[in-house]
Amino acid sequence: MTDIETLIDQISQEAQREPFPIDVPVYEAAHKNPNDAILYAGNLKSQICFFGRDLGRDEVHEGQPLIGAAGTLVRKGFYRSINKQEAPNKEALQTICDRALLTNTVPYKPPGNKAYSKEVKERFRPFIEQLLIIHWKGTEIITLGTEAFKWFTPYCSKIEINSFWEQSDRYSSKLPLILKATDSLGEKYERKINLLPLPHPSPLNTQYYAKFPQMLQKRLIEF
């Protein structure tokens, strides 16, 4: 078992330790075990990470983050940035996993379309920290939506992160911070990363949905 497989197994053990809200019918329809973590897709050696809120129905069925309607918009934009053309099909979009890491604040699907509570996010935080600091080698994290961005609040002062979020240019600026993690043996790790927030690319986000592809392209020019 590889180190990352061990981490995924530890998450699944934690999920079984104490009940929390999981959209069980969606997992059953997909013939998946609700306790099995869908932690990430992509390349752990990539420079860039797309960080979302949590899994949706399509993500459970496909077994990887950011592959539903919103995730497909991200994948199409990233493909376009890399290849200077539109992706010809769904299979071509999958190639972006060679160049990025895709993950979420919690590696499970909540019931309905509601975000997980702070308590659930904190319960799984140590595992996401380990993924981002110990296993992933990149430094640039594009957060998708408020929930994803605010997940990083513990790694800098609350005043600093709230001040950044209130800036009119938050979707074109970077926020550097020191991300920290502790492994299962108690060894501590830390690394400087940059947050590059974007709005959530959901059709329900009427303020930004039409603008999102252009906003994403501006972010990706930096890579």
Score class of each variant (00 low, 15 high):
Tyr27His: 00
Phe152Arg: 13
Glu122Asp: 15
Asp36Phe: 00
Tyr27Arg: 01
Glu160Phe: 02
Ile38Lys: 02
Pro88His: 14
Thr146Ile: 10
Arg125Ser: 08
Lys180Asp: 01
Ile134Gln: 14
Leu132Asn: 05
Gln130Thr: 11
Thr72Arg: 15
Gln214Thr: 15
Ile128Asn: 03
Ser12Thr: 13
Lys118Val: 11
Lys32Tyr: 02
Leu7Arg: 11
Ala148Cys: 10
Lys211His: 13
Pro126Asp: 09
Pro197Ala: 04
His135Lys: 07
Phe164Asn: 02
Asn89Gly: 14
Ile4Phe: 07
Met1Leu: 08
Ile82Pro: 00
Cys97Asn: 15
Glu59Lys: 06
Glu86Met: 06
Asp3Tyr: 10
Asp23Ile: 05
Tyr79Ile: 05
Pro213Asp: 02
Met1Arg: 08
Glu18Val: 13
Leu179Ser: 01
Glu5Ser: 14
Trp165Ile: 09
Gly52Trp: 05
Pro19Ala: 10
Val74Lys: 01
Gln47Ser: 15
Ser173Gln: 08
Phe223Arg: 02
Gly56Pro: 01
Gly186Leu: 09
Thr139Tyr: 05
Tyr108Arg: 07
Ala210Glu: 13
Arg57Met: 10
Leu220Met: 12
Leu175Arg: 04
Gly112Pro: 06
Gly138Leu: 07
Pro203Trp: 03
Arg170Ala: 12
Gly112Tyr: 02
Glu119Asn: 07
Lys76Thr: 06
Leu198Lys: 01
Lys118Gln: 11
Glu147Gly: 06
Leu93Asn: 08
Asp23Ser: 13
Cys156Ser: 15
Leu101Trp: 02
Ile142Pro: 00
Ala29Leu: 12
Leu101Arg: 01
Lys150Asn: 11
Tyr116Gly: 05
Ser202Arg: 07
Val26Gln: 01
Glu122Ser: 13
Tyr27Gly: 01
Gly63Met: 08
Glu140Ser: 12
Asn35Pro: 05
Lys211Leu: 15
Ala100Asp: 00
Ile193Lys: 00
Val24Ser: 00
Ile134Phe: 05
Ala70Pro: 01
Leu102Pro: 02
Thr146Gln: 13
Phe152Lys: 11
Tyr27Asn: 00
Leu216Pro: 09
Ser163His: 14
Gly145Cys: 11
Leu144Val: 03
Pro126Met: 14
Ala87Trp: 02
Lys45His: 10
Arg99Leu: 15
Ala30Gln: 05
Thr206Ala: 15
Tyr79Thr: 00
Gln217Asn: 12
Ile193His: 00
